[in-house]
Nucleic acid binder design. Structure first.
Length: 430
RNA sequence: GCCGCCGUAGCUUAGUUGGCUGGAGCGGCCGGCUGUUAACCGGCAGGUCGCAGGUUCGAAUCCUGCCGGCGGCGCCA
């Protein structure tokens, strides 16, 4: 029986005959010995081929092929401290399934080269670890929402208008007309709460902004939720519970991967709810006290966000932003209409914003007032306004940038490492 | 939209106050090695120094234009 490499890195199989299949990760020829490090999706193991213990032809063939050849291999398992994962297979039989010669990726590769060869670089142990963490993050998100009584649904990717005035849309030809790629599913989720009450979706969002930073993609994975009867605080409570749940899952299930990436696990372990909450004006004061030059009414720039969040010991909610710097759909605070009932969640360690959310306006006249303020034509939002005409309810929602979340949890330097095939302003391949 | 940086072998790069034949590591090919750890050792092949023009006795090096790429800001999740 073929076993996963992870399974045989274990005393249980010592001295026993085992079969594995995978790809040659490293190959070293030392005289009449060949050391192979074989990898599969689970781990790596060193295998030794002795020239006089396997068929001469096999040895010759193996000597010729390069790394990343796919192989099946059979042999006896033993312990050896000199082997990279502590165990080693003394091979008796080896079969080359798909040979590989001159694999393009060797040592000393630039970032850019690895991006051009992402289809091959995804095989690396680094990417393998990141992709597994990403898998766990996405899975845990679904677990959380479903457990919490949210229904999963889907919104269209082809749309005709912007959710937020400022964000730039990708225009696509649509049977002689123009359509756009969605940049948020929020408005559609808002329609669905009148049926399902609590809904969420995980979908790509597209932004045609010419952002060239370590935290931007033109196509990114957006987890969005919307809940009827929820006020701003209720939403924040679900969010912090969700964030903590997902981090716990990653800490439990992806210990090995976090370690491989040298992520500071203790820091992640220290993250607990409730998260610290700061009003926008407190944040400005906090920033000024830490030597960041920013004034009331300014939006947080990238530099400010990095500088501020480096002083955080966990994620922090920022609430009550001035209405001028937030999108029109946020509900103005009845106690101080100059600010809105919204919240951004800033990840610590310099990572910055990963969630944007808030309470939505549910009264038609307030919505009209805010649209006018922002120079928006209500006709373009007829269906969004209908929601405020027929049985409106207070409700809140948020959007989480999944790639940013993975970026932070895995402790990566650039968001492009958090997704298998990053789409940025200047890259659409592979 | 704005600011900055870089194009030298398949890859990573040294060489840029102009000066002899543009060096090296990895990868490739040939050979050696029974305990390697991105193995090591010896040998060989591999270059339109991004492209075009200019300055000069002489240009990878200086100037102009073009092309390609990268990083950051703004905007945003």
């Amino acid at each position: 029986m073929v076993l996963a490499i992870e399974k045989i890195l274990n005393d249980e199989y010592l001295g026993r005959r085992v079969s594995i299949r995978g790809w040659i990760y490293r190959k070293r020829r030392v005289g009449k010995l060949i050391f192979l490090v074989v990898r599969d999706s689970t781990d790596i193991i060193q295998c030794v081929m002795e020239k006089n213990k396997i068929p001469a032809e096999d040895f010759k063939l193996l000597d010729k092929v390069g790394v990343e050849s796919s192989v099946t291999l059979e042999g006896t398992l033993r312990k050896d401290d000199r082997a990279p994962t502590g165990y080693e297979i003394e091979a008796e039989r080896i079969k080359i399934i798909g040979p590989s010669y001159n694999f393009p990726i060797t040592r000393d590769k630039s970032d850019d080269f690895l991006l051009d060869n992402r289809h091959l670089w995804v095989r690396s142990r680094e990417m393998n670890a990141i992709l597994k963490i990403r898998h766990t993050v996405f899975g845990a998100l679904h677990e959380y929402f479903r457990e919490k009584g949210y229904y999963e649904s889907q919104a269209p990717m082809f749309v005709t208008g912007a959710v937020e005035g400022g964000a730039t849309l990708f225009e696509v030809p649509y049977f002689g007309k123009k359509a756009y790629l969605t940049q948020s599913s929020q408005f559609y989720l808002e329609t669905l709460i009148f049926s399902l009450e609590k809904v969420y979706t995980v979908a790509p969002s597209f932004r045609a902004e010419k952002s060239r930073t370590r935290r931007h993609l033109t196509e990114y994975w957006h987890a969005e939720a919307e809940a009827a009867w929820y006020h701003n605080e209720d939403m924040m409570q679900d969010e912090e519970e969700m964030i903590v749940y997902i981090i716990q899952r990653v800490l439990e299930d992806r210990k090995k991967e976090l370690e491989f990436l040298k992520r500071d696990r203790e820091f992640l372990e220290s993250i607990e709810k409730p998260f610290k909450k700061m009003r926008y004006e407190e944040l400005i004061k906090f920033a000024q006290d830490h030597g960041v030059e920013i004034h009331y009414g300014d939006d947080l720039g990238a530099d400010e966000e990095t500088a501020i969040t480096k002083h955080f010991d966990g994620p922090v909610f920022i609430t009550h932003y001035p209405r001028k710097i937030k999108p029109f759909y946020h509900r103005p605070d009845p106690e101080n209409p100059k600010v809105v009932l919204c919240h951004d969640l800033l990840a610590p360690e310099g990572y910055g914003e990963i969630i944007g959310g808030g309470e939505r306006i549910y009264k038609l006249e307030v919505l009209l007032e805010r649209m006018e303020e922002n120079g928006l034509n209500p006709e373009n939002y007829y269906w969004y306004m209908d929601l405020r005409k027929y049985g409106s309810v207070p409700h809140s929602g948020f959007g989480l940038g999944m790639d940013r979340f993975v970026w932070w949890i895995a402790g990566l330097t650039h968001i492009k490492y958090a997704i298998p095939y990053p789409r940025t302003i200047r890259r659409t391949r592979p």
